[in-house]
Design a protein around this nucleic acid. Structure first.
Lengths: 146, 146
DNA sequence: TGAAAATAGTTGCATAGCTAACTATATGTC
DNA sequence: GACATATAGTTAGCTATGCAACTATTTTCA
């Protein structure tokens, strides 16, 4: 096979594995070192609820790019840890609203600095315009496939 | 919290979730539609072996950014499907060399077009320089954290 | 109004991820 | 040569992911 044929595969490798894995692991490690018993996946759910509380599960699917069973189980685990509570919607009985507890609101203050520090570390030496390009390209990749 | 405080988190969200999930799912779907019973994770192992056969497991860890137990199980599953074979190294008895079978070599031809088509679809409307920026930024993110 | 289609969420099953603890072999040093 | 240390790989336990099939509601429309 020519080298050319592997260019795309290599890019797949880059987009899919490397950076995201490294960032995720570092963030997880930094949470743990701060004594916070929370996974980055759980954090990413809380992150969206901190921006807008009491989203339903489908909305969390859309915003986190996960499927419904994944959200069901993440919410199960977050409920076990008393960080969120499922509240049945009054207008549509199919819907669960996922609402933050006080404990989760407290967690926001504990994690936001860790997340910012981690991303600053990850983005060291990369300038604003490059970051902008990455965001736009990844957004377009996503749009191309959905 | 100010909007500013969430900029980094948002970028994390973008790098970590969106594009990579979308590409992975599409690739998986395209494999399945072609009747290929293989996961993208398994494919990514084969991808490295097609470039260089008979790597040991630790080397596969390094090249795929996975940890050792993950590789152990991926190789377990690939062996079950008769796509690779563990060969004990003759010079160092701690080491397994992971070598392709004929079936896996055949699979290369069946999957390479699917992978290329998928990446072309994903990268539609994105020009070469932008792709270059993304690759370099993600590489630097990785380097910053390792 | 009543049957079909759409939507929200759950459950079962398989794969994959991470950490920690473990075995086995190899290396380095006194 | 022997003991400490490093390295390769495996196992166990938990969380997370994806798909398919399922239940329960709501909406659509003939």
């Amino acid at each position: 096979m020519s080298n050319n044929q592997f260019k795309r595969g290599e890019l797949y490798s880059v987009i899919n594995g490397m950076a995201s894995t490294a960032v995720a692991r570092r963030l997880q490690k930094n949470f743990r070192q701060a004594g916070l018993d929370i996974t980055i996946e759980q954090w990413s759910i809380l992150y969206h609820l901190w921006k807008e509380d009491c989203l339903n599960q489908q909305e969390l699917c859309n915003r986190t790019f996960r499927d419904k069973p994944s959200i069901t189980r993440l919410i199960d685990n977050l409920e076990k840890q008393k960080l969120v509570k499922r509240m049945p919607s009054k207008t549509d009985r199919r819907i669960n609203l996922v609402c933050l507890t006080d404990a989760a609101r407290e967690l926001q203050h504990q994690t936001i600095d860790i997340a910012n520090d981690t991303m600053n570390e990850a983005l060291q030496g990369i300038d604003r315009e490059e970051i902008e390009v990455v965001k736009q390209v990844l957004q377009r990749v996503y749009d191309n496939l959905t």
